[in-house]
Design a protein around this nucleic acid. Sequence first.
DNA 1: GCCAACGTTGGC
DNA 2: GCCAACGTTGGC
Length: 158
Amino acid sequence: MNYWLMKSEPSNFSLDDLQRMQNKTEHWDGVRNYQARNFLRDEIKVGDGVLFYHSNCPEPAIVGLARVVREGYADHTALDPREKHFDPKATDEKPIWFMVDVQYLCHLPQPLNRDDLRQHPLLSGMSVLRKGNRLSVQPVKAEEWQAILTLSGIADPL
DNA sequence: GCCAACGTTGGC
DNA sequence: GCCAACGTTGGC
């Protein structure tokens, strides 16, 4: 059982958007970075926990929790020339890019912004806080997941 | 294989 | 809007 942080720009796709999807589930498409692709293809498993992070917005923060309900499969948006993230090198046989399905679990009672994370001894080392960090899918330690639950005063929904 | 140029990300 | 950091591209 592993934990992950996934970034989304709320102007593109927010936690509220995920909550509104059918079955509260959506595929996490459009990742076009090899390191993140490897996580999506090889390491992220059904049942893993996801911290939903809002990036590139007025208040960057961890805003809620989700879980993985389908593991790595071909990101079909890479195959469609009409899609923004179309990749002419991707084929059915060699899709190059992968995605998982994630399901909404809950909002945090209060979003945890970057100052909140920095001030917490167990969270100040999170990779999302590192300068220059651009990875949109990144591993989270079990202690970090637990600390976020404790800090938020909620039970583990997994 | 090097590396400069370029485009993108993302906090502030 | 600014700008630092990073990944990718492509000439050589």
